[in-house]
């Protein structure tokens, strides 16, 4: 038995049988099989339907609803009944005194995070050189652990460790003979705490992909390099790093894709009136004006501005990657 036709468009006539296959019996059985494939198809749609409906309601309806950014949303009129105001909300945002502060804070935080992308690569390269399997496994498992600690607990740990009176860090600072620092209230410290606590949480976990790429490196390349007299560092430099470059590029593009969507949930937890100068970012502002103050349309406009920049960045970086390396998302 040959395989049935792979694609059977709904409503399409059964494929005409190939030459030498014109006996009526065969044609009939073919038709039956094609019918059966179609009958199979409607059941496949049943399987797909719940998810399709889900994405429609929770992804596409909100996308469509994003138009409230161009309307003046009044709860009693609903999304569709509220009147159009064009770019009014956007203009108000661009003209506001906090626009540049929000934009700067968001960009600086993203950039700071992005600049640290080599850290997990370095860790992965180092782990890859370990020959003792027990130690390697232990180091991996332990460095993955913070990934499973919730953001709330991580920020809770920050508050506990950085407490000016009772915190671990300030005990050390006092031990050296310096004055305790109000870390959590100081705008100057916010970014460092935010970014490095993130490094602590994700460093180990981010090595997984790189370690997998390194495991795929052809050992013959290493043998050849060894014969040429390359030492370990040179082999890392000339064999391992080129081998994981494609992965690095793809992950970097994806990082840019979420550039403006910096983990604002953590920023929100760390945000307070005293460090607001550095910790107010676009997304926390959307939450505060939209959900706390109820200015839905205005907040939606700010949020839309954020996602538009995101998309531009993603497409732009992908374009660059396509031009200057062989790797890109599409």
């Amino acid at each position: 038995m040959t395989a049935p036709p792979a694609v059977s468009a709904p409503g399409a006539a059964p494929e005409s049988p190939p030459i030498g296959d014109r006996t009526p019996v065969r044609a009939a059985s073919r038709r039956r099989r094609a019918k059966r494939a179609l009958r199979g198809s409607w059941q496949l749609y049943v399987l797909v339907a719940p998810a399709v409906l889900f994405f429609l309601i929770f992804n596409y309806v909100p996308m469509y609803g994003a138009q409230i950014a161009f309307r003046d949303f009044i709860a009693s009129d609903g999304i569709w009944g509220s009147s159009w105001v064009g770019f009014e909300h956007f203009e108000r945002f661009f003209d506001s005194y906090y626009f540049w502060r929000l934009l700067r804070n968001t960009l600086v935080l993203s950039l700071y995070q992005l600049l640290l992308f080599p850290l997990p690569i370095i860790l992965a390269l180092a782990l890859n050189e370990v020959k003792n399997h027990v130690f390697k496994r232990f180091a991996q498992t332990l460095t993955y652990a913070p990934h499973f600690v919730s953001l709330v607990v991580v920020v809770g740990m920050l508050f506990a460790f950085m407490d000016p009176r009772t915190g671990l860090i300030n005990h050390v600072i006092e031990l050296i003979g310096l004055e305790p620092i109000q870390f959590m209230q100081d705008p100057g410290w916010f970014r460092h705490l935010y970014v490095w606590s993130g490094v602590w949480q994700s460093l180990g976990w981010s090595t997984i992909i790189y370690l997998a790429a390194l495991a795929g490196v052809n050992p013959e390349l290493h043998q050849a390099a060894q014969v040429d007299g390359a030492n370990r560092l040179q082999r890392i430099r000339h064999v391992n790093i080129p081998a994981i470059m494609p992965t690095v590029v793809i992950l970097l593009i994806l990082d840019f894709g979420s550039f403006m969507a910096v983990g604002f949930e953590k920023a929100l937890l760390m945000n307070n009136s005293l460090n607001a100068e550095a910790s107010d970012i676009i997304q926390t502002f959307v939450y505060e004006t939209g959900l706390l103050e109820g200015q839905y349309s205005y907040a939606a406009a700010v949020g839309l501005f954020d996602s538009v920049i995101n998309i531009i960045l993603l497409v732009g970086v992908n374009q660059l990657a396509r031009r200057y390396s062989e790797n890109s998302l599409w």
């Binding site: 399709v52 992804n59 909100p62 839309l304």
Partner: peptide, 22 residues
């Protein structure tokens, strides 16, 4: 088509406020 329909949601999202309203 269905795959793209789903993939597309990775690129675009309605954002916090419209989702909240839904």
């Amino acid at each position: 088509a269905v795959t793209w329909y789903i993939l597309f949601t990775m690129l675009f999202s309605g954002g916090l406020i419209p989702t909240y309203l839904v």
